[in-house]
Design a protein around this nucleic acid. Structure first.
Length: 201
DNA sequence: TATGCGATATTCT
DNA sequence: GAATATCGCATAG
């Protein structure tokens, strides 16, 4: 545990292409530095939301809510939905183009006890499996909407702590528009991946 | 394991 | 009013 070195990712390492970014982020690290300590997790599941994609929040143009999706690639877009959940995306294209990668699940690395307190559950498997749970465990809310994930701060993207396994793909979860597109990516066999078993082959 | 439902806030029609 | 990139709990198989 102590020998893990997490290096911040530079923006020029991130693909300027939302699908490529969604694949690239599998196995990388999400880091949250809080006064109470560091939280980190291995990204194991993502979904891409593209320009011209009816399921993308940017589809109908820019609004105050989705503003961050239009920032240069590598910025956080955080929104609240279903009256209960925050979700986090990483903007994926050049400035002015609205698209992003939804982070759907991570494998906890550091700060597991702090995550348990945020989530009010002790089950390791339930801490960060699913986009709403992940945001809750990492205390991600509107305050980090628009944050540059390639800059030093309280929320950033880091290098992989270990080699990643093969990437699986499927249709996206929980949407109705453009629902047939194969834009969900995950690390095969990882138990922290969310969603039904039939989508995890 | 799968399916169903209510809760709940914000945005869109 | 309706829809929503979900969760947690309930119930049935």
């Amino acid at each position: 545990m102590a020998n893990r070195k997490i290096r911040p990712l530079r923006r020029d390492e991130l693909p300027v292409n939302t699908v490529k970014l969604a694949r690239y982020l599998i196995g990388k690290t999400l880091v949250r530095d809080l006064p109470a300590g560091r939280l980190s997790g291995r990204i194991v599941e993502t979904e891409a939301y593209l320009p011209g994609d009816a399921a993308c929040h940017a589809f109908r143009g820019q609004t105050p809510r989705n503003r961050a999706l239009f920032l240069e690639h590598g910025h956080a877009y955080v929104y609240f939905i279903y009256g209960s959940s925050f979700m986090m995306n990483v903007s994926g294209e050049e400035p002015g183009v609205g698209a992003g990668v939804l982070l759907r699940a991570v494998e906890p690395i550091e700060g597991i006890e702090l995550m348990r307190r945020h989530r009010r559950t002790v089950r390791l498997l339930d801490l960060t499996r699913g986009p709403g749970r992940l945001a809750s465990a990492f205390r991600i809310d509107k305050r980090v909407d628009g944050v540059d994930l390639c800059a030093p701060g309280a929320l950033w993207l880091g290098s992989a702590v270990r080699k990643r396994g093969a990437i699986g793909e499927s249709i996206r979860i929980g949407i109705t528009r453009d629902a047939h597109l194969v834009l969900r990516f995950y690390e095969r066999g990882n138990i922290f991946v969310s969603g039904p078993k039939r989508l995890q082959i």
